[in-house]
Amino acid sequence: MPMTEEEARTKWCPHARQSTDNFTTYNRSESGKVDDSCNCVASDCAAWRWMSAHSADDFDLVDVPGDPIGALVRRRNYEGEARRGFCGAFGKPEA
């Protein structure tokens, strides 16, 4: 699911590991509690993928006199919105 980096950093990552004094690693305790160090690191991870700035659904095709193709007009204004991305380790999220 696409989210901001701040949102992603609150999610557990199955690939993150925490080490112990005896050189073993884990990503949650025996009780199932997740250590904050095992959360997503968002764009600091090689698997992080950014969503494109705009999708085709953000535009309307309008008629332009004298132009056989028309023109795209943006429906949404993204000014001031946080950029969104997703974990690409398991493929692209479905819409």
Score class of each variant (00 low, 15 high):
residue 1 M to P: 06
residue 1 M to R: 09
residue 1 M to N: 07
residue 3 M to F: 07
residue 3 M to R: 14
residue 4 T to R: 07
residue 5 E to L: 03
residue 6 E to V: 14
residue 6 E to W: 04
residue 8 A to Y: 11
residue 8 A to T: 10
residue 8 A to D: 08
residue 9 R to D: 01
residue 9 R to I: 07
residue 10 T to E: 11
residue 11 K to I: 12
residue 11 K to H: 10
residue 12 W to G: 02
residue 12 W to C: 00
residue 12 W to E: 06
residue 13 C to P: 07
residue 13 C to E: 09
residue 13 C to Q: 10
residue 14 P to R: 09
residue 16 A to T: 07
residue 16 A to V: 05
residue 18 Q to E: 12
residue 18 Q to K: 15
residue 18 Q to D: 07
residue 19 S to P: 05
residue 19 S to I: 05
residue 20 T to F: 01
residue 20 T to Y: 02
residue 22 N to G: 00
residue 22 N to V: 12
residue 23 F to D: 15
residue 23 F to M: 14
residue 23 F to Y: 15
residue 23 F to A: 14
residue 24 T to V: 10
residue 24 T to K: 15
residue 24 T to M: 13
residue 24 T to I: 06
residue 25 T to R: 11
residue 25 T to W: 12
residue 26 Y to E: 10
residue 26 Y to A: 04
residue 26 Y to I: 07
residue 27 N to L: 04
residue 27 N to V: 06
residue 30 E to D: 11
residue 30 E to V: 09
residue 32 G to C: 02
residue 33 K to W: 02
residue 33 K to L: 03
residue 33 K to H: 04
residue 35 D to Q: 02
residue 35 D to P: 08
residue 36 D to C: 01
residue 36 D to N: 10
residue 37 S to V: 12
residue 37 S to W: 03
residue 37 S to I: 12
residue 38 C to L: 02
residue 39 N to A: 01
residue 41 V to S: 12
residue 42 A to F: 02
residue 43 S to T: 12
residue 44 D to G: 13
residue 44 D to H: 13
residue 44 D to A: 15
residue 44 D to S: 15
residue 45 C to W: 01
residue 45 C to Q: 04
residue 45 C to E: 05
residue 45 C to I: 02
residue 46 A to K: 14
residue 47 A to Y: 08
residue 49 R to K: 13
residue 49 R to P: 00
residue 50 W to K: 03
residue 50 W to M: 06
residue 51 M to N: 09
residue 51 M to F: 01
residue 54 H to P: 00
residue 55 S to I: 03
residue 56 A to K: 13
residue 56 A to I: 15
residue 58 D to S: 07
residue 58 D to M: 10
residue 58 D to V: 02
residue 59 F to G: 01
residue 59 F to M: 02
residue 59 F to E: 00
residue 60 D to Y: 03
residue 60 D to A: 10
residue 60 D to E: 14
residue 61 L to C: 07
residue 61 L to K: 11
residue 61 L to Q: 07
residue 62 V to M: 03
residue 62 V to P: 00
residue 63 D to K: 15
residue 64 V to K: 11
residue 64 V to T: 14
residue 64 V to P: 01
residue 65 P to K: 12
residue 66 G to H: 10
residue 66 G to R: 12
residue 66 G to N: 10
residue 68 P to A: 04
residue 68 P to V: 06
residue 69 I to Y: 10
residue 69 I to N: 07
residue 70 G to C: 05
residue 70 G to Y: 06
residue 71 A to C: 04
residue 72 L to F: 15
residue 73 V to T: 15
residue 73 V to G: 05
residue 73 V to Q: 14
residue 74 R to K: 11
residue 75 R to E: 00
residue 76 R to D: 05
residue 76 R to Y: 12
residue 76 R to C: 06
residue 77 N to R: 11
residue 79 E to K: 14
residue 80 G to I: 08
residue 81 E to A: 09
residue 81 E to S: 08
residue 82 A to S: 13
residue 82 A to M: 06
residue 85 G to L: 04
residue 86 F to P: 03
residue 86 F to A: 06
residue 86 F to W: 15
residue 86 F to C: 08
residue 87 C to K: 05
residue 89 A to F: 07
residue 89 A to R: 11
residue 90 F to G: 01
residue 90 F to W: 12
residue 91 G to Y: 13
residue 92 K to V: 15
residue 92 K to A: 12
residue 92 K to S: 10
residue 93 P to H: 07
residue 95 A to I: 05
